[in-house]
Every structure is written in structure tokens, then in C-alpha cells.
Design a protein around this nucleic acid. Structure first.
Lengths: 218, 218
DNA sequence: TGTACATCAGTGAACGCGCGTTCACTGATGTAC
DNA sequence: TGTACATCAGTGAACGCGCGTTCACTGATGTAC
């Protein structure tokens, strides 16, 4: 059976075959178009070409579907961040900046995932799998912070957890305010990536992670 | 007529008297309870004790009501930020930190306004009054940044606009991730205010706004 | 290999519900003279 | 001061709509023997 559950003639039989995947695809599509708020269960079913009762075979309700989308989003983000970090190559500092850039790129390129993850108002408490996926995304950032901190002599070494929280907050703030896929809310005199890079540069100088203070461009 | 439009016997006549205000109050209440997504026009009418057709006398539709709430939210935020800035007293540095703290306090104390302003997916393009209100909030931050920058010798003076964007993004990131009125998504090893203060301290050190590098606490 | 059976995934019709919106209306308020 | 009138703000009934959810069902698939 083909991936889409359709035969060579383009039609599908009684069974869809990949409805779960198709519903998630549909959800991403619809969230991208209308935002997480405007997304409905019935819409997803219609979009996947099944009756409105069919999704109940795969998801308890609308929120369960969105939570699954969010979980996958965090997994994807983890992958992207890990790839950007690249085990600290070519050097921890450059790699750390790449992680920040990857966060912005994710917010821009995957607005639907980003919405489901951060704007759908999901509670993490009732969903251990979701929480765990989010934790793993953050762990990449934390691990990178630790390696960056480890380069400093112990007496001027900042707490890595704090550093990763600052980095996350700055990246998330810039992404939310300026780098959304929908064009953002405010025009900027520079690219969001530049804004983040300049901010991280200044921050790392303040920490003493960078010895040589590079003058930010006017 | 009393503020609430009710007579001494507690009942109101045919005319409400302050329906516009009452609808906005109701919207704040409902957004605080169910989030901006769950808020409906009919709910607001019910909550204000009028028929579901009545709100149309005052707002074109649901979005117009939310936009008005958001506009008021920005006005309130502007007030709070200006009060915190206090014309740079006692000194620009302390005042600047107070502005950041006021931002977090606003996100925490006024989650309904915050939702309407940043999470309702409103477009600023079609609403000049809303855009202007948002601009004025940002202008406080920008003005404060300029005064802080002006203390530095010209050759090491950073661009004030960039500095204010970084400050906004960091504050907004921390507020969104950790300091929402609904309890936030993640447990922190420190208060959001401390996290912001430490971050701004490090950032300002990196800029050279603070001469003496203060060691962040472990 | 064939057959009987269990299991699964999707159907389609139905339900109650609440929303958004329109409409002719009506009660209250303000104002001109 | 009283009266006639215009304007305004809210009524209540009605409408179509789409959503969420349930239900008995049915077609397809897999498996035991």
C-alpha cells in the first residue's frame, strides 16, 4: 500500500491506511493558515478526506492532536538545534551562535509547529511525553552552554543553567516579536538573526566568555 | 446615573448606560479565564447582562472588541513603564532596571491584557490606533535606552535602538516563557525578575554601560 | 490453499449546542420651541 | 413648564452554520487451522 493509502488509480479504499499521519499533516496545514486558535477537529478530518468521526479512532480530541503536533515540533526542534550545535564544531562559540540562529530559523520556517508548541495554550502537566520532548530541546541549549562555560577559568565561570535560560529567552523573544513566519508584528532596522547575534555577542562579552570586546556595528 | 447603569435597587432600566465599558470588563474577565482564543462575543454580552445583539451597537465584531482591549493594554503598559522609568530617577541605570521589572510585573498581573496584546493574533496594519498605542509603549523603552547610552563616551556608545530591542526581546521572552499569570510553562531555579535582572546586568556589562563587572551569583 | 472468524478502521446519519449576525421593534433620553 | 419629536441603545426572535460527539453499522485486513 502506498504511503498516502491511495492506489494507482488515485482513489483510496474503505481504509485510509495512514490517517494518523494525514491528520497531523492536515493540522499543520490548517494551523499555518488560520493559527492554532482557528484549527478545528472537523476541519482536519475534511482536509484528510475522511468523515468527521474518523479522527476519534486516533486522537481522543482536538487537544490531543495539537499536543501530538507540538511533541513532534519539539522533536524536530531538538534535531535542528543538535545539528546546529554539531558537537561544538568548529568551536563552541561559533557553534553556540549557530544554535541561536537555528532557533530563529525554526520559528520562521515552521510557524505551524511553533504555534502548536508555544501559542496553543497546551498544558505540559498532563502530558509527560510532551514535557519530555520540550525538555530535550532545552537540554541541547543547556549542554551547549555548559561546554561554552567550561572554557572559562573556574573563578569567572557563570552558571550554565542561567546562561541557557537567558539565551532561550532572548531567542524566543526575538522570534515571537520579529521573526514569525507570518511576517511579524514590527519592522526592524536589521534581520532578526543579526539582532540575535549582536545581542548574544554583547551578552557573552558581559560574561567574559569572549575576551576581546568587539564593537557592535552602528 | 451610576457608573454601572444600575439604580439604587440594583436593577437597570432598558438602557445599560455603560455597555461599552462593561463589555471591555467582561472581555478582560473572560480572556483571563479562558484565554484570548476561547473568548466569544456572545459570552461578553451574556456576561454584561445584555442580549447578544447589543454589543453590535458598540463594536463592529469580536476582533474590534479585542483590539480595543489590546489598545487599552498598551496604554496601561505605557503608563506602568513610564512610572517605572520615572524620568531616569534615581539614576538611569536603576531606572532602566525598574522598567524591565515593570514589564514582567505587567505580564504577570495583567494576563488578560497581555493575551490580547501579544497572543490574540491581531493585525496591527489595519488599526492605526492600536499600532500607535504599541509604538508609545516601545518609545518609553527606547527613550530610556537613549538616556542610558548618552552617559557613555561617543566612541563606545552603542545604538540605542538596538539596545532597546534587545531589552524588549529579553523581557518579552522571559515573560512569555516563565512569568505568565497562569503560572508559566516551566519551573525556574530563580524568580523571573532575578533572571531578567541578571541578564540585563550581563548585557549592560558587555556594552560597557557598567564599568565594574559584578560577578553573577552562582 | 481455503475457509471461518476476530479485529480493526472508517462510514454516515443524527443530536444538541452555541456562535455570529440580522431584523423590525421599543423603551428611554435629550432637545427645540 | 409642557409637549412633540428625533435620536439613541437595547430587545428578542429568528436564521444558517459548523462544531464536537455518539452510535450502530460495514468493509477490509489479518490469522488460526
Amino acid at each position: 500500500m502506498s504511503w498516502s493509502g491511495r492506489g494507482p488509480d488515485g482513489r483510496r479504499g474503505y481504509h485510509h491506511g495512514n490517517l494518523r499521519e494525514a491528520l497531523i499533516e492536515a493540522a499543520l496545514d490548517l494551523i499555518a493558515k488560520k493559527g492554532a486558535a482557528g484549527f478545528t477537529f472537523a476541519d482536519a478530518a475534511r482536509s484528510a478526506g475522511v468523515s468527521s468521526a474518523a479522527p476519534y479512532r486516533h486522537f481522543r480530541d482536538r487537544d490531543a492532536l495539537i499536543a501530538d503536533v507540538a511533541r513532534r515540533g519539539f522533536n524536530l526542534l531538538t534535531e535542528r538545534l543538535e545539528h546546529a550545535w554539531s558537537e561544538g564544531r568548529p568551536d563552541p562559540f561559533t557553534a553556540f551562535e549557530n544554535v541561536g540562529r537555528a532557533y530563529l530559523a525554526f520559528a520562521r520556517d515552521e510557524p505551524a509547529y511553533y504555534s502548536a508548541m508555544f501559542e496553543a495554550g497546551l498544558s505540559f502537566d498532563g502530558d509527560p511525553a510532551l514535557r519530555q520532548a520540550a525538555e530535550r530541546s532545552f537540554a541541547v541549549l543547556r549542554h551547549a552552554s555548559e561546554l561554552l562555560c567550561a572554557r572559562l577559568p573556574p573563578e569567572k565561570r557563570p552558571p550554565a543553567l542561567m546562561m541557557s535560560l537567558h539565551t532561550w529567552a532572548l531567542s524566543h523573544g526575538i522570534a515571537s516579536l520579529f521573526a514569525r513566519g507570518d511576517g511579524g508584528r514590527r519592522r526592524l532596522p536589521m534581520a532578526p538573526e543579526e539582532l540575535l547575534e549582536a545581542g548574544m555577542l554583547i551578552y557573552l562579552q558581559g560574561l567574559g566568555v569572549i575576551a576581546e570586546p568587539a564593537k557592535p556595528k552602528e
